[in-house]
């Protein structure tokens, strides 16, 4: 196991610009204006990776910010989740959108099974239990 990152490794753009990769494996140094003009750069090259978020989580934890680190870890799980599913899941978490606890648990299940997003699945399950206790599965509009 490699040593955890510390605040000395920050910012990654300066300490390891050659190692950081976008989603299609292109390194930061390769994303140049010439490459954009040549048509070789897509938005996918400009997207953060789960690895970068995991790295930032380690740095946050080293800086004494465990809750920020957890957010980055949940985010890392969402990187590969399609935008539409993210938006529909967000919608289901809003008050009264899910009409029952089961509906929300189904969302959690999809995160766990389809996207291997264990942290986010647990987070939504936690929400489902509390929404039930606080009566949020109710008519709103």
């Amino acid at each position: 196991m490699t040593a955890k990152l510390t605040i000395a490794d920050y910012p990654l753009a300066e300490t390891r610009s050659d190692k950081i990769r976008g989603q299609r494996g292109r390194s930061l140094d390769d994303i140049t204006l010439d490459a954009v003009v040549a048509g070789g750069v897509t938005m996918e090259d400009l997207r953060i990776t789960p690895q970068a978020l995991a790295d930032q989580a380690e740095i946050s934890r080293a800086a004494g910010r465990p809750t920020l680190a957890l957010n980055f870890e949940r985010a890392a799980e969402l990187v590969g989740v399609p935008q539409d599913f993210i938006m529909s899941s967000y919608e289901m978490l809003r008050p009264g959108r899910a009409k029952s606890k089961e509906q929300l648990l189904d969302v959690a299940k999809a995160f766990r099974q389809t996207y291997k997003a264990e942290l986010m699945a647990e987070f939504i399950e936690e929400a489902a239990a509390i929404y039930e206790r606080r009566g949020l599965f109710t008519y709103r509009f």
Partner: peptide
């Protein structure tokens, strides 16, 4: 919103 929906969004932005 709820604290959980907002926290979900926070992770969404970071992702």
């Amino acid at each position: 919103d709820t604290p959980w929906s907002k926290a979900f969004l926070a992770a969404g932005y970071a992702s």
